[in-house]
Simulated scan of single mutants.
Amino acid sequence: MTRYARISGTGSYLPPLRLTNADMVERLAAGGVETSDEWIVERTGIRARHFVADGVFASDMAAEACRKAMDAAGVDGNEIDLIIVATSTPDMVFPSTAAILQHKLGISGCPVFDVQAVCSGFIYGLTVADAMIRTGTAKKALVVGAEVFSRLLDFSDRTTCVLFGDGAGAVVLEASDVPGILATDIHADGKHAGILCVPGHVSGGKVLGDPLLKMDGQAVFKLAVGVLEDTARAVLTKAGRSEADIDWLIPHQANIRIMQSTARKLKLPMDKVVVTVDEQGNTSAASIPLALDHAVRAGQVKKGDTLLLEGVGGGFTWGAVLLDL
């Protein structure tokens, strides 16, 4: 019998603190930085984002999202035999955020690890979990994206600090004899590492380099629109499907203009694109599972729909997953 991996439950979590563009304008003005709601919306489509409170970490948000996903799937923690956390903002240098999450969920014994592919992290995590389930290494996995990007932002740089938010999204991925994940496609090109990075590290008890996010927005945009089309077409080809088979495009929620460009190239109307960037900003590895859970719970995305998930992020990394829900 052929073994497949299928999403059986979704969950997400956003911190209670919601900051509108007006809130960000006021915060930046206090530091002598000028911006406006119109400037932010025109360039990004973002109107609000959520920031965590002091003392809240990626694992805390991930735990909330996982509990909702397990509840939706009807799965108990003792049934989970794999946990993968995609994050660029781990709780600590080590152990992995996945290990901390495992303990918070009351699970023990199963393998756990983090995946670091920035905004493509959830796509990478799904790809790895799919492979492990197909080979029989796991039967029921939690794949999570969780980020606390608010702690990496330079609030003197209006071109980046207004873009990002915090949150977590999770799915339960289960072994099935019915196809779920149809095909995956992941890539990276490290020569572009400098266009989106946090160039700092810890050494001798001190932070060396610059621990705040740096981005060349134009370079990222130009690269993103090309690779997202390529990976979308690659995953469709692998699955023997076409653009006409896509019920919903659920892209990484970075910038509405990138999302619109991808939809146009795939000949998809925007009413087939799940959009949450307006209310959540860019939540990096959390953005795709957050958008997926939002769409499922809103009744947009339904069981049996064919979904194209795709993301692009620092590294430079990119990839896509085609699946039947």
Rank of each mutant, 00 (worst) to 15 (best):
G226Q: 14
T44Y: 09
T10N: 06
A168Y: 06
D130N: 14
V225Q: 02
S96I: 15
V198C: 13
G299K: 05
R297P: 13
S284Q: 06
V296A: 11
R233N: 13
D81Y: 03
R257P: 04
G226N: 14
D247W: 08
L208M: 12
A72M: 07
L290N: 08
K222C: 09
T127G: 09
V207K: 06
A69R: 00
P15F: 03
T283K: 10
G45R: 07
V33E: 01
T237I: 12
V225G: 02
A53P: 11
N282P: 02
N255L: 11
I46Y: 01
D91E: 08
D54Q: 15
A138N: 06
V273T: 14
D76N: 12
V207I: 15
L28R: 01
I246S: 00
D71G: 10
G315E: 02
S120R: 00
T262Q: 13
A5L: 10
P251Q: 04
T317M: 08
I246K: 00
H50L: 09
D247K: 07
H201A: 14
K222S: 15
D130K: 05
D23F: 07
I186M: 14
K267T: 13
L307W: 01
G45P: 06
S203K: 14
F221Q: 04
Q280P: 00
D271W: 07
L14I: 05
L268Q: 13
A98Y: 06
V312T: 12
T89K: 08
F122S: 02
K302D: 09
K272F: 09
D81K: 05
V274E: 10
T237H: 12
V115P: 01
G31V: 08
A62N: 12
E174M: 11
G209T: 01
N282D: 10
V235Y: 02
H50R: 14
P15E: 06
F57P: 07
D324I: 13
V33P: 00
P179H: 08
A29V: 04
H187F: 11
T10Y: 10
R257N: 09
F316V: 04
M259L: 14
V118W: 00
G74P: 13
A69Q: 02
V118M: 02
V118E: 00
S203Q: 14
R67S: 04
D154Y: 11
D177Y: 12
E310D: 14
D81V: 03
V275I: 14
A286L: 06
A141Q: 13
G304V: 15
K140A: 03
L153W: 07
V225R: 02
V227Y: 08
L152N: 07
C161F: 09
T35C: 06
G136S: 06
A58H: 04
G205N: 08
M61I: 04
H192M: 13
V112P: 02
G9K: 00
Y4A: 12
A224P: 01
S59K: 04
F316A: 02
I123Y: 04
I46N: 00
A48P: 02
F155I: 12
H50Q: 11
Y124K: 15
M132V: 07
L212I: 07
V143C: 02
F113Y: 15
V301R: 05
A53V: 03
A29F: 04
G304E: 15
M215F: 13
C66V: 09
G125T: 03
A86K: 11
R27E: 11
W39P: 00
G9Q: 01
A285H: 10
A183P: 05
T306C: 15
F221L: 12
L196H: 07
T159C: 02
S176P: 13
G165Q: 00
